[in-house]
Design a protein around this nucleic acid. Sequence first.
DNA 1: TATTGTTATACTCTATAACTATA
DNA 2: TATAGTTATAGAGTATAACAATA
Lengths: 157, 157
Amino acid sequence: MTGTDRSPPAAHPHLQASGIGSQTGFMLRAAQAAVWADLTAALAPFGLRPAHYAALSIVRASPGCRQQEIGDALGMQRPNLVTLVEGLRSRGLLRAARNPADRRSYALRLTADGTRLLAAADRAHDAHRARLATALAPLDEAVLGAALRRLTALAPD
Amino acid sequence: MTGTDRSPPAAHPHLQASGIGSQTGFMLRAAQAAVWADLTAALAPFGLRPAHYAALSIVRASPGCRQQEIGDALGMQRPNLVTLVEGLRSRGLLRAARNPADRRSYALRLTADGTRLLAAADRAHDAHRARLATALAPLDEAVLGAALRRLTALAPD
DNA sequence: TATTGTTATACTCTATAACTATA
DNA sequence: TATAGTTATAGAGTATAACAATA
């Protein structure tokens, strides 16, 4: 998504007149930008961006996983993982040990610092989720989730 | 969103284990990417990208509008509109006449070619919308739209 | 002084191709 | 030959600062 903290399109007369503002694709884009900005702001105090937080969460859930498994999970290309993982490694949040069984790959694990920082970030993330749940009510989060998954399935491959 | 045709994160074991894949922010991101890719593919035969299509739709709905009004409607910065409008103008889809009342701004209108191309693109866009509606059912498009608007309202400013 | 459009520029995210070292 | 990680690079999209013309 998008990169920085851009504000989403506000309800604007011209947007309304054109009908663009009430079309699912554009509404989805605006909502995604707003939610991403909220998540980005929630994680910023920890020096983490959404991709960092997701990567640490994946390593915590799957200790010893390869770098590429993060990419598969997040839909990122391999070259773009290098900077992401290196950033976390250089901050001492992650360690990458050569896998003895297959010395091409690394086995990724959280360090103690990484575990602590991620636990603190989890609390900010929980607050973010609560804001989303409040904004969504009365539509249930799970109902929205199911709909989003069906939309995601539209994509080829 | 993203730029090109990237495929969204597939349901992946590590994604599932981490819980990231069932969190609204990340689901929203994946769904948005898939929907955007579908829209991009639908508009590609016309040489239009989503921003082009949205800009033309706004000009059609608001003939004589200023360039900046497109930016306000779409949440784009002024400098980034120059390339967008110039591209449409150089293809003869849009014309920009100096506004006699305020000679700082241009009055944008569709050309006959622009009107025709946009009408053709509308049909591809309708097909895209139908695919979304099918994927969403039984959740109503309007119910999702209302939820997305509430999420969009999370953003500051 | 403020606004419209413009130029120049930079940063982020994402994409492909080609390399290395291992298998 | 195939895979994991890496390097270099390019393309979108978006951001800010500063300028000219006009109000």
